[in-house]
Amino acid sequence: MRSTQLSISCLSLTLLLAWAAPALAESGAETYRTKCIQCHGTGVLNAPKLGVAADWVERTKKGKAVLTRNAINGINQMPPKGGSLQLSGAEIEAVVVYMLAQLPGDGAAAKAKPVSTAAKTAKADSAAAAPKRVAEVAKPKPKPSAKKPKPRGKPVNTFNRLMRPPSQRNLPPTRDGIHDASSVETAALQHPKEAFGPMPKSNSGNRVDWVAALSKGIIDPRFDLEDDTKKPIVLDLNIVREVKGSMPDVVYPHKQHTEWLDCSNCHPSIFIPKKGANNISMASILLGQQCGVCHGRVAFPVSECRKCHSKNKSKVAKK
């Protein structure tokens, strides 16, 4: 299963590279984030840190080709391919290009003389690595150098001023601001993107549609601590709550909830099990009561109005 997925993603990467060499740095960034960041993001084992010039000055003098070869074969404490043996030579080269591009001043020395080390290694490496792609890969890339050097300090007119920009979503634990990146074990924690990859997407929260992931069988969380064959008893009962004004009525579905939860999680501590017996309002939901005990904390956030307010009124009431 895992290896199928992997080869599919390798395949798509191959296609991607063949068609769009400029996307190289981009894919290098992605590989870096999933396979190399543990060491190169933190400096563990004295790995040269991403973007830290002092760690790289001596190394860049070797040239990109040698760096790539060392990354492929391993050097001192650096295991071959950083331990991700499934990566092709070209993929490693893409990461090296990305790493060099992150240096202030841009590691130009290393980029001046691109040699096709990757060509040799990649060919031997896997059937997936087509020579044609490698030729593309070995061409000098203007893209990464055009992007840098990174401006120092925060620019004033960022596109998103108060909202989190897309580049800041689903960050790995080492960069998420609540984990201690200097702790070696933090690097062992899973990158959310890796786990979320196969799941249906949504617009908020974890950016994953948990209901769809479950109903499509993409995830199968246990219902019992030990016995993974036990299944929940699902109650299919919708409760419609009428809402004054223009907002559509709220349909509360027992079905999706009893997939995840036990009756005792809500009854009677949060809701009296009687239609209309509870006085629910948006204000209390926003403050983390009633539906807001879970929504806006772990289950999808309150910003997803339409998921709850799902029943359009036949005639919009006007006041």
Binding site: L162, M163, R169, P173, G177, I178, H179, G205, L286, S303
Partner: peptide, 17 residues
């Protein structure tokens, strides 16, 4: 809530952590 400006800070961890 509807002010389109929502939260931006140094901590960008996963929802629900």
């Amino acid at each position: 809530l509807l002010i389109p400006a929502i939260f931006f800070s140094a901590a960008n961890a996963e929802y629900g952590d």
